[in-house]
């Protein structure tokens, strides 16, 4: 790791101030992606701004028909939260399947979505449930937030503060993990609720999370796994790596989508 100046601001304003005064500053949520990257010397920020001490970023609340999760909330808290478990069990289950227990104790929802790894679980949750991302500047619909592999709509001085999930009628998540890294080879969130019928896929797309409109149309008619029979995604634009070819991923999207719908009950 190259050395850097470390900041641990107590407020978003302090964080923005530390970031703006740095020549090449980097925000850190739980650090579960950033620190391994720095250890491999694949980045050399002048300053690291640790957001973990900002109390306004933590916490899970019910607001109207939505569950609002502070950006600094770690995966284990989401998985174990009673509101999430009762209102959006698919989200709790998704959080419970991220990484491993130690990663879940540190990794945060804000850090995960700001990083937008194409194989991360949370992007599927946000898009698949029609969530809204709240930042220090604005609110962004999940559909507009994830703009490509490791790319988001966030500006350089924009910090995710919370994610608001509308409570769905039903939702399910099914993941086929990479056996080594436990990232999603394919993960599908399917839901029906205030945001309509949604099917969001992570792990498979080269550009990160994407929706499958053909599946959404099929499920809008009847929200059941059988409705997805014969509906497939083309392999052309899907990821290929050691663990799964694009063709296999395309097949898994179909299988996982059915399982997600089944899990939604």
């Amino acid at each position: 790791m190259y050395d850097f100046n470390y900041h641990r601001p107590k407020s978003i304003d302090e964080a923005l101030s530390a970031l703006s005064s740095a020549s090449d500053g980097k925000l850190m949520g739980g650090g579960q992606t950033l620190l391994p990257t720095l250890k491999q010397r694949l980045a050399s920020p002048s300053d690291v701004v640790d957001l973990s001490a900002i109390s306004e970023l933590s916490g899970i609340t019910e607001q109207g028909g939505a569950i609002v999760i502070g950006a600094g909330t770690c995966h284990a808290e989401v998985a174990g939260n009673a509101s999430v478990q009762s209102k959006i069990p698919a989200l709790a289950a998704l959080a419970e399947g991220i990484g491993d227990p130690q990663v879940r104790n540190r990794g945060t929802i804000g850090g995960s979505i700001a990083n937008n790894d194409p194989a991360a679980d949370y992007p599927a949750a946000l898009v698949g449930l029609g969530a809204t991302v709240k930042t220090n500047m604005r609110e962004v619909a999940a559909d507009d937030f994830f703009t490509g592999m490791f790319e988001t709509a966030l500006a350089d001085d924009e910090i995710v503060t919370a994610v608001s999930f509308p409570v769905p009628e039903k939702a399910g998540y099914a993941k086929f993990p990479n056996p080594a890294s436990r990232y999603a080879i394919v993960g599908v969130m399917a839901s029906k609720g205030p945001a309509g019928v949604r099917v969001a896929v992570t792990g498979a797309g080269q550009g990160g999370v994407f929706r499958v409109s053909a599946m959404e149309t099929a499920l809008a008619g009847h929200f059941s796994a059988e409705a997805l029979t014969g509906v497939s995604v083309p392999a052309d634009d899907l990821n290929a790596d050691l663990h799964a070819s694009a063709e296999y991923r395309a097949h898994l999207v179909g299988v996982m989508a059915k399982r997600a719908v089944d899990a939604a009950g």
Binding site: P118, G148, M149, D241
Partner: peptide, 17 residues
């Protein structure tokens, strides 16, 4: 080097992108 060793999962799609 390290690129190939650690990041094989994203090499193809990244290059295409």
């Amino acid at each position: 080097g390290k690129l190939a060793q650690i990041g094989s999962r994203l090499v193809d799609s990244t290059a295409k992108k």
